[in-house]
Design a protein around this nucleic acid. Structure first.
Lengths: 252, 252
DNA sequence: CGCATAGTTGAGTGCTATCAAATTACGTGG
DNA sequence: CCACGTAATTTGATAGCACTCAACTATGCG
């Protein structure tokens, strides 16, 4: 049923936003739209970025960077999904976050990467050399400001996540996660009601600080309560958004 | 025993760094040193900042800003400690973080504040109007870069916190918290072994996603294991730093 | 000295993790 | 296209850790 002859799973393909829907995911249109929307760049900036960008294609579960790797490249995701992973010595795992189309990786000023970054599905990225990005930042002071603004937004988001991990119960965490994802997708003009979760239950569990079993039970509970519908494992429909918002805000 | 005749508690006074030790906490020396060290500014930048700064004095438990307040000022802490607080409708509380000398508040590009900000102890701050800060940022492009770098550092820290909340047990969380605080103090040239915790157990509990009882039991446990010594409620000595590091990294 | 607040300690419960088994999805080769 | 094997997910039973409730202790302040 895929629109692709390659073994690319449908859920990865459908993540390519806008004009590129149904076209190959590494299309230039997609890339330009991505760059300009995600950083709100002007035409000149987009051209300058296009000049130094190269593209990259990852298979599911392949590793893009490892914790401790020197930060030499800047990436931006155009299609697919990646996860930021940290492992504790005894196997405890945390997924710090997911990178979806429009997200950047490697803008941090840290010398090395702080997480393993792995492809969840087949993924397309734009790659810049860090020096090129640096040069662009010097040439376009505005870019610096936009990146700062973006970093601040992410910082707020990270603190929101922390609140959830500290004080929300499993159902509330899952509700917050589903809304998060839905909003991220909405920013790209995708339907808010029907959602595709690119990641598996284990990734969700490790993102929410729970076990797979608890995540599964929480899905089941939300389904029985008529808050969501599960069409298949990765296809979720948000039936009662208001209820989800209440749950995520701790008014469960 | 305080070096102050005012009712300022000793632990707040001892947070004024460097040359100002023993002098009034709002001294200009202290402020300049603070500004230049925390943002690594040049002389010219420091002068420009000094020109638009005014100072502020908070009593313990007073509120500086409330969640939802418009963001009109930028503050930097010179002495004392503040907490970033979020409350859920049913009373669940989270302390997203603490602001210690050298930390900024209000640099976010968000329109409104996302947390209540309350003084933990008597606190001194520098206050700039947000517009002045904006003007400075435009005048000194370098400042923008340093702020971005700082934001990235905080983002990394926030993700580290999230890992702890998701996957560490109470003892490990407390170990990580103590090390965090110790490192923050070390950056200001303060002793690493002996520490003063400005905040109470309830603030620590709400920061670590635990209850006061569990925090208290964890302190007791670390003390019995000879990892720390508690001289008084706020005075902690780190006896076995290596063990703390192992605990915080999940090698407990 | 007595009250109020903060912290510690103890007993019991409940929620979520753990362990185990059944069920469903999915890729592979017939 | 279907049968099979593997991996992922769901469901069930049990156990343990952290929360809750409660009592006690310490500290500070009038």
């Amino acid at each position: 049923m895929s629109r692709f002859s390659s073994p690319m799973p449908q859920r990865a393909a459908s993540d390519c936003p806008g004009p590129a829907r149904g076209a190959p995911v590494d299309c230039t249109t997609c890339r330009i739209r991505h760059l300009s929307v995600c950083a709100a760049l002007g035409d000149e900036e987009v051209s300058a970025l296009e000049a130094v960008v190269s593209s990259l294609h990852l298979q599911p579960n392949s590793t893009l960077v490892r914790e401790g790797d020197p930060r030499r490249q800047v990436y931006s995701v155009t299609a697919g999904a990646l996860r930021l992973v940290r492992l504790l010595p005894d196997g405890r795992r945390q997924v710090a976050g997911f990178l979806l189309p429009g997200d950047f990786l490697g803008l941090s000023t840290a010398e090395t990467h702080r997480h393993d970054v792995e492809a969840v599905t087949e993924t397309m990225l734009c790659r810049f050399r860090a020096e090129d990005m640096q040069a662009l930042r010097e040439r376009f002071p505005d870019l610096e400001r936009k990146l700062l603004s973006r970093a601040m937004t992410e910082l707020d988001a990270a603190r929101e996540t922390a609140l959830g991990l500290a004080r929300l119960n499993p159902i509330e965490r899952l509700a917050a996660f589903l809304l998060d994802l839905s909003e991220k997708r909405a920013r790209w003009g995708r339907t808010e009601q029907l959602m595709v979760l690119p990641m598996g239950r284990a990734d969700i569990a490790d993102h929410l600080g729970l076990t797979v079993e608890t995540v599964s039970r929480s899905f089941t509970r939300l389904r029985h309560d008529g808050v969501i519908a599960l069409h298949d494992i990765h296809g979720v429909e948000l039936l009662d958004r208001k209820r989800l918002v209440d749950l995520a805000a701790g008014r469960g």
